[in-house]
Amino acid sequence: MFAPPTFLSESFDFAALDREAAGIVALDAEGRIVWLNAAWQRFASANDDAWIARFGPGCRYVDAVEPRFRAPLEAAFERVRRTALPFEEDENGAAPMLFPAQHLRVLPVGSEGLLVELSEARTTLARATQDPASDALYRSPEGFVLQCSGCRRVHCAGEGWHWVEPWVSAPPPSTTHGLCAACAGYFVEQTRRARRQTRDDRGPR
């Protein structure tokens, strides 16, 4: 695993993020890629050699996407930094990737860093899970479906977290709620941020 730079928040468990099925990178305050997970590297090697040169360590993320996406992406990044709230959308063809339909999620990390997560698009998986037999894919041996209470994705053994569109608003029977690695880090980060804000508002004692 790439060692996360020390300036990144301690709220996120980077070892857990490294094990996620979704491709994840961390960006510094200038938007440069300073950490990437194993899935991101696998994704890169499944594409052409030029891909990792554009989306690898040290690259500025926004500069690597197609020109027409740069301004809205820059605006989204700026909004996440300013509001400390996540941003997400389905995107198609932001880069000439092997899997063009992606779900993009951006979370704040530390004071000005960002976590960018690319997973298979929600719509793609919604189509793939119309088959009732697929329900079994998501059940633990005890019969539970584990849903992230933050992003509402469900856990698929060995494959990380999947968007199953019908379950986002209406989870299936015997659903138990947990946290994916990204949402756990975000929850810790937000709680600590709120705590610092409360202390700052109180002022020195």
Partner: peptide
């Protein structure tokens, strides 16, 4: 009490703080 280990670790960390 929670059956999700990550939720347990998160709650433990924040409540200890």
């Amino acid at each position: 009490v929670d059956d999700d280990p990550r939720t347990l670790r998160t709650m433990q960390l924040l409540l200890r703080e």
